[in-house]
Amino acid sequence: MLRINRENLKSSHQMFWFLVDFLMLGLLIINLAFIIWDSIYNFIAVQNLLKDYLPAVQTAYNPVHERFIFYDMIFVSIFLTEFVIRWGYSVKAKVYDRWYFYPFIHWYDLVGCIPIGSFRFLRVLRIISIGYRLQQYKIIDFTNTKIYRFLAFYFDAFMEELSDRIVIKVLTGVQHEIEQGSPLFDRIQNDILYPRREMLSDWISDRVAQAAQQGYMPNRGALRAYLEHRVDNALKQNLELSRLKYLPVVGPTIQDTLENAVGDIVANVIHQILNDLASSTNHAFIEDIVNVLLPDPNTTEEEDSNQEALITLIYEIIDAIKGQVRVKHWRKNLP
């Protein structure tokens, strides 16, 4: 339900102008209703219908219809008077840098006052501007009304449908350009990524170290136990190793020793690798990987195969983005 916040109205120090806004809002609604009714009455069929069923209404309103311009000019004169008063106040209060800025900024007020045909319906812009000003000062909150939520929902749905189609069209064009050998790919690789290889290496190195520290260090005991368990199961399923237990006296001992040694070696190797990744020593390793992925543009060795693989990767990434764009999020909010 639409309510007036009286506290904000009093604290705004513009109570007089807001009261004028409410008065103008009421006059505008009455004026637009009068214009709409007169436009409907202008049809001969409506006049005949009223003459047959409501002759008193037709007799009373017909003189008003004949002098419609006169009555409409009464409203126009009120609107223009209010416009001039506000203009004078803006000049006195120095609201704008120049005295003549006001009519250009509030052009919709003047255009709506033109008493010609469809220009009259532009007075609805004045209603919108008054409503926006009242909403901006939190005198009235339109966002809690059912009409606003209804219109906002379908406006968001329309904008999502429109933007999705535009994005998909653009991404499809990018894919087409990549297939046709667009220089965009070379510019991304040679002009953007290659000059920043060192920065990429530092960033990836830091991210890998952070991920290893947060993911491995707190769980290294559990990971070691898991690796030893998996290695132990794998060795027990090995046919050659299982035959050792048939050796007299030392067979079972050798089998257990090998199982423990292999499990310990695997766990230690994994532990050392993850420790290296979690420290600053991983930078050289990451830098080598980045250098392989972003080779010197002057080097032509395996350039075609690498470029084709990277183009395929980019193409698939764009396909994935298009698939996500096609998801209609607004449908999830349907009642």
Rank of each mutant, 00 (worst) to 15 (best):
I85R: 02
A222W: 09
H106Q: 14
K10Y: 13
F104D: 07
R331W: 04
N190M: 01
I36W: 08
Q324C: 02
D97C: 07
I286D: 02
L171W: 06
N333A: 15
N62P: 00
L227R: 04
L171R: 07
I69K: 14
W87M: 02
R3D: 14
L32Q: 09
H329P: 00
W87F: 07
I178P: 02
K236P: 00
G215M: 08
Q324N: 08
S280H: 10
G221D: 06
V91Y: 01
I188F: 12
Y226E: 15
T312C: 00
G117S: 05
F121M: 10
L235N: 02
Q324S: 06
Y100W: 13
D304S: 15
H106A: 07
E179F: 15
N31L: 12
D202R: 11
Y108P: 01
R243C: 10
I74A: 09
V208C: 03
I130S: 04
V111M: 04
N268M: 11
V76Q: 08
Y154R: 11
R243D: 10
K51I: 07
I116H: 07
D109Y: 14
I29Y: 05
R230I: 11
Q175C: 07
L247W: 04
T145D: 06
L110F: 06
E161I: 13
N275G: 10
A278I: 04
E161T: 10
F155V: 09
V170F: 13
A212E: 05
Q14M: 15
S182K: 02
L200C: 01
P297I: 00
R149F: 05
R220P: 03
W87R: 01
M24S: 12
S205R: 05
S11K: 14
F185D: 01
F142K: 02
L80F: 09
L19W: 12
Y315P: 02
Y100H: 13
S12C: 09
L27D: 03
E308V: 06
R230F: 05
M15Y: 11
S163D: 00
D164E: 07
I265D: 05
W87K: 00
A33L: 10
F16C: 00
